[in-house]
Design a protein around this nucleic acid. Structure first.
Lengths: 110, 110
DNA sequence: TTGTTGCGCAACCTCTGGTTGCTCGTCATT
DNA sequence: AATGACGAGCAACCAGAGGTTGCGCAACAA
């Protein structure tokens, strides 16, 4: 279970950055920092970790470096999210069903 | 957007702990630590943060303290997971659809 | 009573998210 | 061509979180 992807999207600032990149198509450290409550340097560090796990790719154009979402990798991350959610959901359902069965048995047997 | 829940389930050790508690019904810091690659004290700290956000509740019995999942709160966490996943998934679909439309137009117009 | 077991507290280490301050390349303006 | 402004990258530093070891204390068992 690739934990790098999880920890990459575990950070709230990075999740917002992904949202911004999805909305705008692409962005630089400076443009992203303008819409975030952190400095450009912090954003740059986050971009570095997103880049390292492949969630984002950067192309340099002149003095600017534009980053863009890697859709395949983000899809993989979404799949992991859904997998964990589904697993827990299934367990919760099973527990609830069991509890109800016990409840019914108690009512029946007095 | 309650970020506390997210950061609580963002940690991989805590996710495993939740799995273990769901599987076993309940557990103590010691019993959980036996199935985890970290010490009892580390587990105790994690239980404290899970307790603080309400994902888990503890009852003291003698010298032991048994923790148990709060199902309603975990359901809420699962909902947040699914929400983020669904949001990203929707955007990815939209982007893909758009890309395909452009592709088709390019093929058509030559 | 005397061990043993489980917990909690405190000190410490390391990594990560964040900051400030600087330098350097690129662009633009004159 | 020179100068200034802008964007990026690097380094040092700080605070908080995950982790460890070490200790003391209450509760159980012999």
């Amino acid at each position: 279970m690739n934990d790098d992807l999880w920890s990459a999207i575990g950070d709230p600032t990075r999740r917002t950055m992904i949202d911004l990149l999805l909305a705008g198509g692409s962005g630089t450290a400076t443009t992203l920092a303008q819409e975030l409550p952190v400095t450009r340097q912090a954003v740059a560090k986050h971009l570095a970790v997103l880049d390292r796990v492949g969630l984002v790719t950067g192309r340099t154009a002149g003095r600017e470096r534009h980053y863009q979402i890697d859709e395949a990798q983000l899809a993989k991350a979404v799949a992991q999210l859904n997998a964990v959610g589904a697993s827990w959901d299934a367990r919760l359902r099973r527990i609830k069903r069991l509890a109800e069965a016990i409840e019914r048995k108690r009512d029946r047997d007095g």
